[in-house]
């Protein structure tokens, strides 16, 4: 507890955002989620806020994204953009909190830089949303899904190779 008391205000604010934004992303769906789901999500979000570099972070994000894909009745409603912004905000808040120990004051210019970067990254979401809306009424095109699967697999493979090469070069 004494370590928590030494946290800077900016670090506390960033951690608050890490806890609240995933819940905002769920609330944006406009339907009441199951209580156990909310409790588990809140607990995981608190754990993520305490340890912003832990793998709990991606569990929280994947959990919310999966819930939107599986449980939300009308997933392509406009508030999905709010959910996308909230999830990216939680990611950026955790990233800012992980630049140093909790007692480190988050630098103003650094926070501003990441707000700009987050807004830039968010530009992809409306484009994807518009494309999804456009494809929703179209007849099923198995070839399109195959091409998409191959593209995604290629991207994932490239990312994995890049990460592996980064580690291998330095060791």
């Amino acid at each position: 507890m004494s370590a928590l008391r030494r946290w800077s205000r900016s670090a506390v604010l960033a951690r608050l955002l890490v806890v609240l934004l995933p819940l905002v992303a769920v609330a944006a769906a406009g339907q009441r989620p199951a209580t156990p789901f909310v409790v588990v999500l809140a607990a995981l979000a608190v754990a993520w806020a305490i340890a912003p570099e832990s793998p709990v972070g991606w569990i929280v994000l994947v959990l919310v994204i999966g819930w939107w894909g599986v449980r939300v009745a009308d997933p392509l409603q406009p508030t999905v953009l709010l959910a996308a912004a909230a999830l990216l905000g939680a990611h950026v808040a955790a990233l800012l909190a992980s630049y140093g120990p909790g007692r480190l004051t988050i630098d103003g210019p650094l926070a501003l830089l990441w707000v700009r970067r987050a807004l830039l990254a968010l530009l992809v979401a409306p484009v994807a949303w518009a494309a999804a809306l456009g494809l929703e009424g179209a007849p099923d095109q198995p070839a399109l899904w195959t091409v998409a699967l191959v593209t995604v697999a290629g991207l994932v493979l490239a990312a994995a190779l890049a990460l592996r090469q980064a580690a291998g070069d330095e060791s």
Partner: peptide, 14 residues
């Protein structure tokens, strides 16, 4: 499920 693309796409950039 295209909504997953909408939610995950912003993470591709960083």
């Amino acid at each position: 499920s295209p909504v997953l693309v909408v939610l995950a796409a912003p993470f591709v950039v960083p």
